[in-house]
């Protein structure tokens, strides 16, 4: 496929590296946006998911809401947010947080729920407080599932962070949009390949973390809930 060859050549062209619009700069920007979005979403979604998983309350409502959130068209959401917040990174970041949310939430509650009930009951009978139960028993036992949710959310955000370029001079999406609009398909495809490569790196890294979390005695039979699967934007 000469199109792919051209795209690879575009990436390897030294002139496209370095400087404020170089591939290296764009890669870092993309990574930073991804990290910020996932971290912000996790800061809310994981505690909420843990709470639901631990108490078993509100599960139906939250699952239904998270499902509906998945159905929201991201570009529509982004434009609405942009009209409200103006151009810049805030609107895309918020849209990405919304995208990451369902996966992180599902991973968190499924992880906590998946902790072996026998182990939890035993810990409770030892006189552990609810806090201790969550932090010392449920979360460690369910960590692999929680990381599974994080992994899914990251994959989704890194792919969708291209939308940041819709409203700001940020990230690998710049190559996509510029290439698409001027029918410079090697440039566009180069952007896509770079995004995919970044996603691969992050995914491998998180898979490694996930494996480490699974530990010596996999009490939970699972490491990802299907609901933790990402929603594409």
């Amino acid at each position: 496929m000469s199109l792919f060859g051209d795209a690879l050549a575009w990436i390897l062209d030294g002139g496209h590296w370095g400087g404020p619009t170089g591939i290296d700069t764009r890669l870092w920007q993309h990574l930073a946006v991804t990290f910020a979005a996932v971290a912000l979403a996790a800061a809310v979604a994981i505690p909420l998911g843990v709470l639901i998983g631990h108490t078993g309350r509100g599960r139906l409502v939250v699952v239904a809401t998270a499902g509906a959130v998945r159905a929201v068209p991201t570009l529509g959401l982004l434009t609405l947010l942009g009209l409200w917040l103006g151009i810049g990174l805030t609107a895309p970041l918020l849209a990405l947080v919304v995208l990451a949310f369902p996966s992180l939430l599902a991973g968190a509650y499924a992880g906590v729920e998946s902790a072996d009930r026998g182990a939890v009951d035993a810990a409770r009978s030892l006189g552990m407080s609810e806090w201790q139960l969550v932090l010392r028993v449920e979360l460690p036992l369910g960590a692999a599932v929680v990381i599974g949710g994080l992994r899914a959310a990251t994959l989704q955000v890194v792919a969708t962070a291209t939308l940041a370029a819709y409203l700001s001079d940020t990230g690998l999406g710049r190559y996509l949009f510029a290439g698409l609009k001027s029918r410079d398909y090697p440039q566009m495809l180069a952007g896509a390949l770079l995004v995919a490569a970044l996603a691969l790196l992050l995914d491998v890294a998180l898979a490694f973390v996930q494996r480490a979390c699974r530990g010596p005695a996999p009490l939970a039979p699972s490491d990802a809930a299907p609901e933790a699967a990402p929603a594409k934007g």
Partner: peptide, 12 residues
């Protein structure tokens, strides 16, 4: 200096 706004001169 340039900043992209990809809505073709629309509301954004």
């Amino acid at each position: 200096s340039f900043t992209p706004i990809d809505d073709g001169g629309g509301p954004l």
